[in-house]
Design a protein around this nucleic acid. Structure first.
Length: 591
RNA sequence: GGAGUCUUAGCUCAAUUGGUUAGAGCGCCGCCCUGUCACGGCGGAGGUUGCGGGUUCGAGCCCCGUAGACUCCGCCA
């Protein structure tokens, strides 16, 4: 037995007990005579005292201890001397007076100090096993475990079965780039790592499993971000004979359970609901952050008779004039900065421009205000609540791009004015009635907004028959927290004919349908039940719960921005023989 | 594929307008210290300022290139 208890259990009541502890030397305070060691294990810290007058040989040996040495000590739990208690430590009322010391393993001097902040993420990832020794990282992983446990408990209670689906599966015709795995037994053929267990979970519904869930690893070969890794984890679920509303209620229950059991926070249910159309019109985003206002206002009527050429031509071509009011931003935005913002809108957002008006010391400062009539100015001010110190930003374009640009400006305003800084608010939201299809000028075809198995809303089926794809809404929903998409799902198509029609709308002909989705269409012909589901991004959820600003902080061994594991150096070049066995060859030219 | 920020000691950072031998804290090493918990005291080691080039009497600082890290856009059904 290496130890009788952990480093976070001993309290005043344990005084007089003989204990054995094992762990790492967190810090040492060597007074020449008496020596203190903070011993650390996963659970916490305990102060160990080496006293030369009581155990001279052990005390002598303790002089040689250094940070991160792994040791085992046996000793007597004692109350700390009067006035030397440490209120910052859970075990601060006691100390262990060591009578035995075993050095289990010496440590080299670590490349960074375990108990301090390290900014260099490169170094942290290279020595991830040391980085994870820091209590902050341990807390994050513990919380992640807590969330997974709550999820399993809750869904089990709701009658869901945890079922694993294949990691070696097929490439997905649409969507993200796949990771491919060559098949040795089938030369020239490839598996793909799943982007999501989508088809399998639907086939489990056809199989009659009724309620499935999985904490599923998913893979996408796309560029990385603070909130994106090539492999990530989803809480994935699917159920039969269920409505969209029922799935939403289930997820509200799940999130309530998670927040309660991980943070001790009660979140209000049901969540607010908003259609996609409303979210776009009011906030210019399909995942609006509702912790602040700055809503988009329709101004087309104000400028209906405008002589301002830019607005005039936009309106005459079926566009709209809309604006947001950045309340009190005038002092934070100089004329130079406003010009920079305009430049940003043009280059990064592809906007034609970003007109603005700054109201400072009673003056309307703007390159465009001279084109406005007095009536227009009056109506504008009243409609926008435009007051001293405010800045208005205009979007003049077709409704969708106008809102998108203003939505992005809205977020930039929030960032500038620190509207959400220090906020503890949790604004949950369901965004519903997403469009089913979106025209892609790039591919010159319609593409699925969600995925090709998403069910059109019953009342829009007629529009679909007529080919008015842009107007067809989907039985799809996203759950959003503070402007972050936590997850999304939909009711699926369960009829062979309707699924085939949707494939056709996406430009997938009968032959291709059979080739790529024959298994699914066939399955649907054998009595597929109505079904639907959802997937939540576990990494993102845990990141928010931890207050971290990157999912790398809640993943034990993440990859860096270029998809490299700095610790193991993965991915690596492989020997030619390995490639030959797989019947593949690299086209990379060696330098 | 594009934009931005950054790169100085093991770590976190500083270095005035381009000007002496590039500093500090922590860590490390040595000595001293019997109640500390950010222990304290004395002493010490540790630097090709990411790399390459240029401008200059003189470059950590200015210019060009390059590598890497991070953030964002594109992309992510």
């Amino acid at each position: 037995m290496y130890r009788s208890t952990s480093c976070n259990t001993l309290r005043k009541e344990n005084a007089g007990q003989s204990v054995t502890l094992a762990g790492w030397v967190n810090s040492r305070r060597d007074h020449g005579g008496v020596i203190f060691i903070d011993l650390r294990d996963r659970e916490g810290l305990t102060q160990v005292v080496f006293r030369p007058e009581e155990h001279p040989q052990v005390a002598e040996a303790s002089h040689g201890l250094r940070g991160e040495d792994v040791i085992q000590i046996t000793g007597l739990v004692s109350p700390r001397l009067q006035g030397t208690e440490n209120a910052k430590l859970a075990t601060g009322q006691i100390e262990v007076i060591a009578s035995e010391l075993t050095v289990l393993n010496k440590s080299d001097v670590p490349p960074f100090q375990i108990d301090s902040k390290v900014a260099n993420e490169d170094l942290r990832l290279t020595y991830r096993y040391l980085d994870l020794r820091r209590s902050e990282m341990k807390q994050n992983l513990k919380l992640r475990h807590r969330v997974a446990k709550s999820t399993r408990d809750f869904l089990d209670e709701q009658g869901f079965l945890e079922i694993e689906t294949p990691i070696l599966s097929n490439p997905t015709p649409e969507g993200a780039r796949d990771f491919l795995v060559p098949s040795r037994l089938n030369p020239g053929s490839f598996y793909a790592l799943p982007q999501a267990p989508q088809q399998y979970k639907q086939l489990l519904q056809v199989a009659g499993l009724e309620k499935y869930f999985q904490i599923a690893r998913c893979f996408r070969d796309e560029d990385l971000r603070a909130d994106r890794q090539p492999e990530f984890t989803q809480v994935d679920l699917e159920a039969s004979f269920i409505t969209a509303r029922e799935i939403q209620t289930l997820i509200e229950g799940l999130l309530s359970r998670i927040f309660k059991e991980s943070l001790g926070v009660d979140i209000p249910v049901p969540f607010q609901r908003m259609t996609y159309a409303e979210a776009m019109n009011r906030f210019g985003s399909d995942k609006p952050d509702l912790r602040f206002g700055v809503e988009i206002v329709e101004l087309s009527d104000v400028f209906a008779h405008s002589q301002f050429k830019v607005f005039r031509s936009v309106l005459d071509n079926g566009g709209v004039i809309r604006a947001i009011n950045a309340k009190g931003a005038a002092s934070a935005l100089s004329k130079e900065q406003l010009k920079k913002w305009e430049e940003w809108a043009k280059t990064e957002l592809g906007a034609k421009g970003l007109a603005y008006i700054r109201l400072k010391e009673g003056e309307w400062e703007s390159p465009i205000v001279k084109f406005f009539s007095e009536e227009e100015k009056k109506a504008l001010a009243s409609k926008m609540g435009f007051e001293e110190g405010d800045v208005l930003f205009f979007g003049a374009d077709k409704p969708a791009p106008a809102c998108e640009v203003l939505g992005r400006v809205r977020l930039k305003v929030s960032e500038l004015l620190k509207l959400t800084e220090g906020s503890k608010e949790l604004k949950f939201l369901w965004v519903v009635d997403f469009p089913l299809l979106q025209f892609s000028p790039e591919d010159n075809s319609w593409v699925a907004v969600h995925h090709p198995f998403t069910r059109p809303k019953a009342e829009d089926l007629e529009l679909m028959e007529k080919g008015e794809f842009a107007e067809v809404r989907a039985e799809a929903y996203d759950v959003v927290l503070n402007g972050v998409e936590l997850g999304g799902g939909s009711i699926r198509i369960h009829e062979k004919e309707l699924q085939s029609k949707l494939f056709a709308a996406l430009g997938i002909g009968p032959e291709e349908q059979q080739h790529k989705f024959g298994h699914l269409l066939k399955a649907f012909s054998f009595g597929a039940p109505p079904h639907g589901g959802i997937a939540l991004g576990l990494d993102r959820l845990v990141m928010l719960l931890c207050g971290a600003d990157s999912i790398r902080e809640v993943i034990a061994f993440p990859k860096n921005n270029r998809g490299v594991d700095l610790m193991t150096h993965s991915p690596v070049e492989v020997e030619h023989k390995l490639l030959r066995d797989l019947s593949i060859a690299s086209t990379v030219k060696k330098a």
